Amino acid sequence: MDRGLGAVSALLAGLSLSAGVTYATPGGPGVTGKILSQTTVGDRDYILREIIIPPGQGTGWHFHDGNLYAYVKQGTLSHFDATCASDGVYGKGSFLEEPSGADHVHIGQNRGTSEVVLEVLYVLPHGAPFSPDAPDPGCDFQ
């Protein structure tokens, strides 16, 4: 494991896992997100969420105002950038990182037959949304 993922793992372990409220996530029907833990340190929010993507659904096109670190607990996530190119396929046990900024628009899709379950750590400026929506860049898929 590289140093960055080790630091993320340590931070995840340090967050208390208190039950949270369930929120909808942009994207297809049945895509949900549940806050597992949330804390603010200085001007940064550290939010741990579980995201579930049913088969055939996706997150919708979006970006993040801070870095995002995800662990695939179940299923396989297909990830695409704004050029419509695949920038990764992540199976159970994989980690992925999404950089911040509107110049990093992307979509995650479940092209499999079972749910994708992600544990996602958001490191956001205090009060920022999880993922602002972005327009479809014109790919031949949603």
Score class of each variant (00 low, 15 high):
L11C: 01
V21Y: 12
Q38H: 15
E50N: 09
P99A: 11
S94Y: 13
H62D: 03
N67M: 04
I53A: 07
I51E: 09
H79G: 00
A24W: 13
P99W: 15
T39R: 14
T76P: 00
G88Q: 07
S16C: 00
G58Y: 10
I53M: 10
G20I: 07
S37P: 03
L12Y: 06
E50P: 06
S18Q: 09
S37Y: 12
D103H: 12
S18D: 05
L77W: 02
R49F: 15
L15Q: 04
A85S: 08
V89M: 07
G28I: 03
V8Y: 06
A82Y: 05
S86R: 05
T40S: 15
H79Y: 14
H64L: 07
E98Y: 11
H104I: 06
D45F: 15
L11V: 05
F63H: 14
K73C: 01
G75L: 03
A7H: 08
G14Q: 06
W61H: 04
H79R: 02
Q74M: 05
T40C: 07
T39Q: 14
G28S: 10
L36P: 02
D45T: 05
I107P: 10
V8C: 03
H106N: 11
G93F: 14
D43N: 11
V8W: 09
L36K: 10
L48Y: 15
Q109T: 09
A82M: 01
E98T: 08
D43H: 09
E97Q: 08
A10R: 09
Q38V: 03
G27M: 09
A85D: 07
Q74G: 00
P54C: 04
E98Q: 12
H64I: 05
L15T: 01
R44H: 14
I107L: 11
S9V: 02
S78I: 00
V31R: 06
V21S: 11
D43I: 05
V89D: 10
A7E: 06
Y23Q: 12
G42H: 08
S18T: 10
G75H: 02
I35L: 15
H104A: 10
D87T: 03
G33R: 15
A82P: 00
I47R: 13
S100F: 15
Q38G: 05
S18W: 08
G66Y: 14
Y90C: 03
G56P: 08
S86V: 02
Q57P: 02
A102F: 10
G30R: 06
D103K: 13
S9D: 04
T59Y: 15
G28T: 04
